[in-house]
């Protein structure tokens, strides 16, 4: 039987293509154009070639920000993924409590980034914040505006508070999709709780966990608002992550050329990591996980 070939569907994706062109492709092209030129404003540009790329590649500032960024993403993933799985495993599977837990878990996800930053900025203050004041009363030296370790702990805990729910909800959805027959078979085989987790729950959750890791990695790798509101990148440059540094360079110093070169390299790293995750995810899909 001959299949009817119909290309009308292409018109349905046209609005998306136009939207993506205006929101992503054209701005990206402009950034590439800026990255090879110098400007002092007034829409006047001077050819600089690859100078900004070379300068940025030899600049410790970008490498240090990248190091801090990778450390931040690594730490929050190492905490949020196991914690999210642990929470999901302990959530009730049905009944009123399950609905209550789901709503409770969703709450932090509904709070805008700048509000989360403000909450933690006030919460951690030694003079008026509950956390800062309590820690000081206990004799613990905690001041996120002056102490690097305290600043890092604050932004990491803030991120964990804000986003562990996402991992937990995704893991919960993965757990709910496991048919009871698997657990019954495990019970007949007298499998231990660890073995049920290792050989049934974890493999069945692999797909959604990859999505969770991808989402959390991408989001943490691009994080700006929350740490900016809490620490402003300080003390010194201790919590100046990639996007904070980029904004400082582009808008604070108006170094559009170097900032454009910086953002293209930043974009390439994100593109590479996204592709790796995407490839792993599609391979898991093909294996039926």
């Amino acid at each position: 039987m001959n299949k009817t070939v119909n290309h009308k569907a292409w018109f349905l994706v046209l609005p998306v293509l136009v939207l993506v062109a205006f929101s992503a492709v054209i701005p990206l092209m402009t950034v590439v154009n800026y990255s090879v030129q110098d400007t002092f404003g007034n829409n006047q540009f001077f050819w600089a070639g690859l100078e900004w790329f070379e300068e940025m590649l030899h600049d410790d500032r970008m490498w240090n920000a990248l190091q801090r960024q990778l450390m931040f993403s690594g730490i929050i993933l190492a905490i949020e993924v196991p914690l999210g799985i642990f929470v999901a495993l302990n959530m009730p599977k049905s009944g009123l409590w399950a609905s209550f837990c789901l709503v409770l878990m969703s709450l932090p996800l509904l709070i805008p980034w700048n509000v989360v930053g403000t909450i933690w900025q006030v919460f951690g203050r030694v003079d008026i914040g509950l956390l800062g004041h309590t820690l000081e009363a206990l004799g613990i030296d905690y001041n996120y505006t002056q102490n690097t370790v305290a600043a890092w702990i604050t932004i990491v805990v803030m991120d964990v508070w804000h986003w562990t729910s996402l991992v937990a909800l995704l893991a919960y959805a993965g757990l709910k999709s496991i048919p009871d027959a698997y657990y019954q078979a495990a019970k007949i085989d007298q499998a231990s709780r660890w073995k049920v987790f290792r050989y049934i729950e974890l493999p069945k959750m692999a797909g959604v966990l990859m999505i969770a890791i991808l989402l959390r990695f991408m989001d943490s790798f691009m994080i700006y608002t929350e740490p900016f509101v809490v620490t402003g990148g300080g003390p010194g440059n201790a919590t100046t992550l990639l996007s904070i540094d980029l904004v400082k360079m582009a808008l604070g110093q108006f170094d559009l050329g170097p900032a454009a070169a910086f953002s293209i390299m930043y974009f390439l790293v994100i593109l590479l990591i996204s592709w790796v995750f995407y490839t792993i995810m599609t391979n898991l899909d093909k294996k039926g996980m």
Binding site: M29, T30, V32, F45
Partner: peptide, 12 residues
């Protein structure tokens, strides 16, 4: 405003 140059146009 897009600050086009010949090399970047050729690249794209």
């Amino acid at each position: 405003w897009m600050a086009w140059t010949w090399p970047t146009a050729a690249f794209f």
